[in-house]
């Protein structure tokens, strides 16, 4: 596990200048951001709001345990099991919880299914609401202003940036996440995967395909 307490010991942020580095061989330096975080954390610890060990456990969970592979299992099961797919349509939150993917920012998840005529894409125009239990924490581009604005104004152009070209006849629906509702895209199941196991199917499901900025992998990449 990473040492979150002192790993920034030698870090010197580029925006923190004004000190003559040459004369500071004796002391240590913390970046401006690290100082502000330490200030807040030490006060919260003193007041009993947070426990440093619990913070580390939480961080490790998001770094190593919660990620897009959870969502890939949901998608694979939706492809392989029609009863599960129907459950997702009726109550995705409960269906996803049944696989054990519960927790923060998963209180109300809605799945949206891609079809030959409809492609779904997810954005959070205001901040970066995202279904953490199934996708982990959002990628940097999802949090960027260009994505947040262009996904709505020019979804086809955004898809082109990601190397995805859809037929002109395919309708693109853009879903704006909120603090209450998170969306998970169920990409189309690739042709030629009949009879594949859920594990094999899950290997076809990328993070971007569940945000709607990508498609499922070519089966030949997984099983040549």
């Amino acid at each position: 596990m990473h040492d979150h307490r002192n790993a920034e010991h030698h870090h010197r942020s580029h925006d923190h200048d004004g000190h003559d580095h040459g004369h500071e061989h004796e002391g240590s330096e913390l970046s401006e951001m690290a100082l502000r975080v330490k200030a807040l954390e030490s006060i919260l610890v003193e007041k009993g709001y947070v426990d440093p060990a619990a913070l580390d456990v939480l961080i490790e969970t998001y770094e190593t345990k919660i990620g897009p592979r959870n969502g890939a299992k949901v998608v694979a099961k939706a492809w392989a099991d029609p009863a599960f797919r129907d459950w997702l349509r009726q109550d995705a939150t409960a269906a996803i919880w049944s696989l054990g993917f519960t927790g923060r920012q998963g209180e109300h998840i809605v799945t949206v299914e891609n079809t030959p005529t409809t492609h779904n894409m997810v954005v959070c125009t205001l901040c970066s609401c995202y279904p953490w239990p199934v996708l982990g924490l959002p990628p940097v581009w999802y949090k960027s202003a260009p994505y947040r604005s262009r996904a709505v104004m020019d979804p086809r152009g955004v898809l082109a940036d990601f190397g995805v070209t859809l037929p002109e006849t395919t309708e693109i629906r853009v879903w704006d996440s909120t603090a209450e509702t998170r969306y998970l895209v169920i990409p189309m199941r690739p042709a030629g995967t009949e009879g594949w196991s859920e594990d094999e199917l899950a290997a076809l499901v990328t993070r971007d395909s569940m945000i709607g900025t990508g498609l499922a992998r070519d089966p030949k990449e997984v099983r040549p």
Binding site: E8, M33, L40, E41, Y49, V50, D56, E63
Partner: peptide
């Protein structure tokens, strides 16, 4: 699909908000 946090302070800021 790189690291979730680029620097330790980002992870700690994240965890504090979730905890509060």
């Amino acid at each position: 699909e790189g690291p979730v946090f680029r620097e330790p302070w980002e992870a700690q800021a994240f965890a504090m908000a979730v905890t509060l």
